[in-house]
Simulated scan of single mutants.
Amino acid sequence: MAAPRRGRPAKLSLETIVEAALPRDPDQVTMQAVATELGVAPSALYRWVRDREHLLDLVSAELARRITTPDLPTAQNWRQWLLGYARDLREGLHEVPGFAVRLLTGPHRHTGPTAVEEAVVAAFRFGGADEALARQYWYAYSTAIMGWVAAEQNRHHQPAVTPDFEVLIDVLLRGTDQRRPD
């Protein structure tokens, strides 16, 4: 039998809880697993998060924060910015396997557009799309990238042709050229 721990109990914070959950596949994120990793009882987590879904929302928000690029698109760089952000998004989603699928299919309690969504919409606006069309482009762009990453992470998905991510981005952005005003 292990000796009881002496000293102060582990200090918890929202940040330490999210950090403990972040590297796990979303299916593996449980209050018990996170509590065990932090060396606390699961009940201690409930002082910080309502439930597992709340924790997964916090992890999704942290992942989105980490993927956000430091610069914003401009009228001069909007296309290159979208290319760079697509690559950053793909790389960031690969750091946490399973979250691409969660972001695509999981429940979300977001109350409005995120800073990333607004930046991508702004880029498409610089490319000539009106507000409504830019929001549609955001949806197609983000969904296609997350779907691509989810397919890459699916061990059972073996396409006949080796897919090239740059082709996906080219296809996504090519449609914007068709709608640009002359």
Rank of each mutant, 00 (worst) to 15 (best):
D51W: 11
L168Y: 01
W81C: 05
V120S: 06
D177N: 04
P26I: 04
P181Q: 12
L93Q: 11
R50M: 07
R135H: 14
Y85T: 12
G98K: 10
Y141A: 01
V29H: 02
A123K: 04
E117I: 09
G98R: 08
F99K: 03
Q178M: 13
V171E: 08
P42D: 00
D27L: 15
H54M: 11
Q153H: 00
V116I: 15
P181V: 14
G98L: 09
V121Q: 08
S13R: 06
V167D: 06
H110V: 10
G106S: 12
D57Q: 15
L14K: 13
A134Q: 09
S13M: 03
A144V: 06
A21N: 00
V149S: 00
S43A: 14
V40T: 09
A3T: 00
R87Y: 02
E53F: 12
P181W: 01
R155E: 13
A3Q: 06
E118W: 05
D51T: 13
G112N: 13
T68K: 09
S142E: 13
P73T: 10
S60F: 06
E118S: 14
L168C: 05
H94L: 14
L89A: 07
L93F: 11
A64H: 03
Q153R: 09
A64P: 01
E118N: 09
M31T: 04
L22I: 04
E95T: 13
T176P: 01
W138T: 06
G128E: 03
D164K: 03
L133D: 09
Q158M: 08
N154E: 10
T30D: 01
A33I: 07
P73S: 03
A122C: 11
R5M: 12
E53Q: 14
I67K: 06
R174S: 11
G92D: 05
R87E: 10
L133S: 14
H110D: 15
Q158W: 01
H54F: 13
E131T: 05
D25M: 07
A3S: 05
Q178P: 02
A132E: 14
R174D: 13
Q32H: 06
A123I: 03
R174W: 11
T69S: 10
V149C: 05
A140T: 14
Y141C: 09
T30P: 05
L58A: 15
H110T: 13
P9M: 02
H94V: 01
W78F: 15
A132I: 06
L22D: 04
P113C: 01
V29Y: 04
I169G: 01
V149K: 03
P181D: 08
Q28R: 12
R109P: 04
T36C: 01
A64M: 13
M31A: 10
L172G: 00
D51C: 07
P70M: 08
D25K: 04
A151I: 04
I145Q: 08
G147R: 05
P159L: 00
E62F: 08
A21H: 09
G127P: 08
A33C: 01
Q178K: 09
R5H: 10
S142P: 03
G39I: 07
F165Q: 01
L83R: 15
A21E: 09
H157C: 11
T36L: 09
M1F: 01
A61R: 13
A20L: 12
T105L: 14
L56V: 15
R90H: 11
G106M: 12
W148I: 00
Y139P: 00
G127D: 07
V49E: 02
H110G: 15
